[in-house]
Amino acid sequence: MQTVVTMLILVAAFIYLVVKWMPSTVKQGLVVWISPYSPKLASALGAPASGCGSGCSSCGSCDSSTQTGVAQNQLADNVNKIIEKPVRFVRR
């Protein structure tokens, strides 16, 4: 009996993990496919996630476009520094 309960807990945890980390396009397709059969489940899957652990810019605490622009500028600066240095090969 304990094995069955443990297996059910593990299956529930796996399903939660898959739904949590599923790409939004796949999740939207799943909602469209499931909605005729179970509207309550479809609305639960299609509900936007809230909180800090639900992805970038979901809590509205930062401007994600500014953050992305800053990160891209830093990456471009680092690449330029690497490219500017001449590569020297030393034979031994």
Score class of each variant (00 low, 15 high):
D63Y: 12
K20C: 06
L8Q: 15
A76C: 06
K27L: 11
S64A: 12
G51L: 03
C62W: 13
F14H: 10
V79P: 00
S64H: 06
R91F: 12
A71H: 07
G51K: 02
A44W: 13
V18G: 05
V90P: 02
V5P: 00
L45A: 15
K85S: 03
Q72F: 03
G29Y: 08
A42Y: 07
E84M: 00
L75G: 05
A42F: 07
S58Q: 13
N78C: 07
T68F: 03
W21H: 11
K81W: 06
A44V: 09
F89W: 11
I34V: 09
K40T: 04
L45N: 08
S24E: 09
S54T: 06
S58V: 09
K85H: 03
W21T: 03
D77Y: 08
D63I: 12
G55F: 07
S24H: 02
P23Q: 08
E84V: 00
G51P: 01
T68C: 09
M1I: 07
G69W: 04
C62Y: 15
L75V: 01
C62D: 09
I82S: 05
I82Q: 00
S43A: 15
S58L: 03
M1D: 14
V19Y: 02
R91E: 05
K85G: 02
N80V: 03
Q2E: 13
Y16W: 10
P23E: 13
F14G: 08
S24Y: 02
S35E: 05
R88G: 04
A44K: 14
A44G: 10
C62N: 05
R88F: 14
K20W: 07
G53I: 04
T3Y: 14
K27I: 05
I15W: 03
A13I: 01
W33N: 04
V79F: 02
V32F: 14
S35F: 02
G46N: 10
I9K: 13
T6M: 10
I82C: 05
N80A: 14
P23S: 10
Y37A: 12
G51Y: 01
A42L: 03
S58T: 12
V32W: 13
A12I: 11
S58W: 07
N80K: 00
G53D: 02
A76L: 13
K40D: 11
S61A: 00
V31Y: 11
K81M: 09
A12S: 05
L75Q: 14
Q74M: 10
Q28F: 12
T3R: 15
S61T: 09
V31K: 08
G55S: 04
N73E: 06
R88Y: 11
W33V: 03
Y37P: 00
K85W: 04
S35D: 01
M22C: 13
T25S: 13
G51N: 01
L30S: 10
F89R: 07
D63L: 15
Y37D: 13
S24P: 00
V19F: 12
A76D: 07
L41Q: 10
K40R: 15
D77G: 03
R92Q: 11
N73Q: 13
N80Q: 08
G69M: 08
Q72E: 13
V32Q: 12
Q2R: 09
F14V: 10
G55E: 12
S24N: 06
